[in-house]
């Protein structure tokens, strides 16, 4: 069976709040430094983006797909360091903003 999409009607869109303003948050920049897939996509081992493939923030302010970062931290070679700045990885508490949903 072949399905042809003739038209579609978007009712919402979402993206991760990675705490960057539009000024700095150029869409092209927003890729996971480990797998190079956009944050809005999922890590290479997942099939569907969304809550099942979340992002993780370090206290150093670097962001990755959680699965990518955990895979790296799970290797001996990582020495439990952030892949960007080699500081010890400490997962940051996410500030819950009140002006979002």
């Amino acid at each position: 069976m072949k399905v042809t999409v003739k038209r579609w009607h978007a009712i919402a869109q979402w993206q991760w709040d990675i705490g960057r303003t539009d000024e700095h948050g150029d869409a092209e920049e927003d890729v996971c430094g480990i797998c190079r897939v956009p944050f809005e996509g999922c890590c290479p081992t997942c099939k569907v983006p969304g809550d099942d493939c979340p992002l993780i923030w370090g206290e150093c302010s670097h962001v990755f797909h959680m699965h990518c970062l955990l895979k790296w931290i799970g290797t001996v070679a990582s020495k439990q360091q952030c892949p960007m700045d080699r500081r010890p990885w400490v997962t940051a508490e996410r500030k819950v903003t009140t002006n979002g949903s």
């Binding site: 430094g33 480990i34 990518c68 790296w72 070679a77 892949p83 960007m84 080699r86």
Partner: peptide, 14 residues
């Protein structure tokens, strides 16, 4: 063969 730390201990997936 090359002795460079980024190819060993200092490698990062980024």
């Amino acid at each position: 063969h090359i002795c460079a730390s980024i190819l060993g201990d200092d490698w990062s997936p980024t």
